[in-house]
């Protein structure tokens, strides 16, 4: 693992992976959207609104995976002090905020026709809203310090404390009475969802996750270049 902490080696590998990941992501989006919109059945209860699931559920999964990435990267930064770990946590935050925003907005658009309300303060929706604020808080915090390492450490602590929210989100539908439906894919006794709906759902999930990888690499490159710029300017100013 430490071998990849060398930025030169890391970016050589990441840049080789980037075009492959981008093509796979585009392909998965094309196939996923085709099945989601044109070649999957309407739900017997929810009708055509079930198609919202194909953009809503993968966004929520990606939002949680993104937070786990951010917290693990933050922990690595605290323990090993690798700059790339800090940059990875910073790169993940706006992407995770975007995924969370998608799941909140599309969930609202699904809730109105199915539940008769845009929003309800139940455990699932509220914990996901907190996830969104955790991402925004992290972004504000890491950028509030002149010394990026201090900002990174403060952000890492916030990310780790906030990680308690991840299992709360996942199990909120089991622990509390919520309007939100329980899990139908990641269940102990296998998916309960119809296979014709599982296919577009998994294709879209693959598309979201590969796009997450593409955006992580691009943001890491930008953040790393930003750090180098800062070093160059500091050096120029001290001459």
């Amino acid at each position: 693992m430490h071998r990849f902490a060398n930025p030169t080696r890391f970016f050589r590998i990441a840049n080789a992976v980037l075009p492959v990941l981008a093509v796979v992501s585009a392909g998965l989006f094309a196939a996923g959207l085709y099945y989601a919109l044109f070649d999957s059945p309407a739900d017997y209860q929810q009708g055509e609104t079930v198609r919202i699931m194909y953009v809503h559920v993968p966004a929520a999964w990606a939002a949680l995976a993104c937070y786990a990435t951010m917290a693990l990267a933050g922990a690595s930064f605290l323990i090993w002090k690798h700059v790339l770990a800090d940059l990875a946590a910073r790169a993940a935050a706006p992407i995770g905020a975007g995924f969370t925003l998608i799941s909140l907005a599309t969930g609202s658009l699904w809730g109105q026709p199915m539940w008769g309300t845009w929003w309800v303060w139940d455990a699932r929706l509220t914990s996901v809203l907190i996830l969104f604020f955790l991402y925004l808080g992290y972004i504000a915090l890491v950028n509030a310090f002149d010394d990026p390492d201090r900002g990174g450490r403060a952000g890492a602590v916030l990310a780790l404390v906030g990680a308690v929210n991840v299992p709360i989100i996942k199990f909120s539908v089991d622990w509390w009475n919520t309007l939100h439906q329980p899990a139908s894919v990641l269940r102990m006794d296998g998916p309960s969802i119809a296979p014709e709906m599982l296919l577009p759902l998994l294709l879209m999930a693959g598309a979201y996750f590969t796009l997450f990888g593409v955006m992580m690499i691009l943001r890491l490159r930008g953040l790393y270049a930003g750090r180098r710029l800062r070093q160059m300017r500091l050096a120029a100013a001290s001459r």
Binding site: L37, L109, M215, R221, G222, A225
Partner: peptide
């Protein structure tokens, strides 16, 4: 309800992707 959901998802994802790309290129 269905089309705005896909529209919002597309808008956020494409916006994030373009921002990530142009930021890296510029820096």
């Amino acid at each position: 309800y269905v089309w705005p959901s896909y529209g919002i998802a597309a808008l956020v994802l494409i916006g994030l992707l373009i921002h990530s790309w142009t930021d890296a290129r510029r820096l």
